[in-house]
């Protein structure tokens, strides 16, 4: 109970700040009489959210499908690549610069090419999400595997443990904190990646809804979609934190002997 009270206390200033910005925004729109098509007040955005609820849910479902597929793809590829790069140092030396270069290429510029390569369907969207998420995942995993203490591996070798047991007992758990910090970043980027993918070409998705609203000057709808993107990203972030909490029970227990 006390923990909850503390959490509430800590998030109070943040909540108040958000509320203040919203009120200021609302007041500004009303006092200056800004056209709703230019800048809709928060109340209009909430109204739009209400009116388009079922439509937004439908589009969100499409976006989340791309997010799930792209994120999973990037995690799998990054994990496989990081393990290989860790096993063979020459591979790491060869691929590490490429990895960084890949991140510096603006996806927006590259994305139209995906249309040519992968067509108009879901594939293009998934590839954009995967590309956005791949880099934080791969970098964190490579770094995490570097941090594994070689003595722990020696210890298991002396017990005559095989490579599978060494990976399971020593390397994988040691990498989990790195994995989850990568995943937190990747998960937050992933929705944005899907929206970019949808701007290019798609029939469903929050990006599509945004584009349509913008083209028809229904700015409140655009903002509603932005709000949904923000909320979805935050949810994914929190979900990752929950997964980390579940996956690493040893991080939860407090020391009995605090002197160390």
């Amino acid at each position: 109970m006390k923990k909850w009270a503390n959490t509430a206390k800590r998030s109070l200033p943040g909540a108040l700040a958000v509320l203040a910005v919203l009120l200021l925004w609302e007041a500004l729109c009303r006092v200056a009489d800004v056209a709703v098509s230019k800048l809709p007040p928060p109340s209009a955005v909430i109204l739009s959210l209400y009116h388009n609820a079922s439509l937004l849910a439908e589009h969100s479902r499409a976006t989340l499908a791309a997010v799930a597929a792209g994120l999973s793809l990037s995690v799998l590829v990054a994990l496989a690549l990081a393990v290989f790069m860790d096993r063979h140092s020459w591979l790491k030396q060869a691929l590490y610069p490429l990895l960084i270069i890949s991140q510096t290429i603006p996806i927006i510029a590259l994305a139209p090419l995906f249309l040519i390569w992968f067509g108009l369907g879901l594939t293009s969207k998934i590839v954009v999400v995967a590309l956005v998420c791949f880099f934080p995942m791969a970098i964190n995993l490579v770094e995490g595997l570097e941090q594994v203490d070689p003595e722990t591996i020696n210890l298991l070798k002396v017990m005559q443990a095989g490579p599978a047991m060494i990976f399971r007992s020593a390397q994988l758990p040691a990498v989990l904190p790195y994995f989850f910090s990568g995943l937190k970043i990747a998960a937050t980027y992933s929705v944005m990646g899907a929206v970019i993918g949808e701007w290019l070409a798609a029939r469903w998705g929050l990006g599509v809804f945004m584009l349509r609203s913008m083209r028809s000057y229904q700015t409140a709808n655009t903002f509603a979609a932005i709000l949904v993107v923000v909320v979805l990203s935050l949810l994914l972030f929190k979900l990752t934190e929950l997964a980390a909490w579940l996956a690493m029970p040893w991080h939860r227990h407090k020391s009995v002997y605090p002197e160390e």
């Binding site: 203490d149 003595e151 722990t152 020696n154 210890l155 070798k157 002396v158 017990m159 005559q160 007992s169 020593a170 758990p173 040691a174 989990l176 690493m248 040893w250």
Partner: peptide
Amino acid sequence: RVQKVGYMPQQDLLFPWK
């Protein structure tokens, strides 16, 4: 060649996740 011996390295090296 790595042998099955009771080797105990300098730090306790207990796995923190176990």
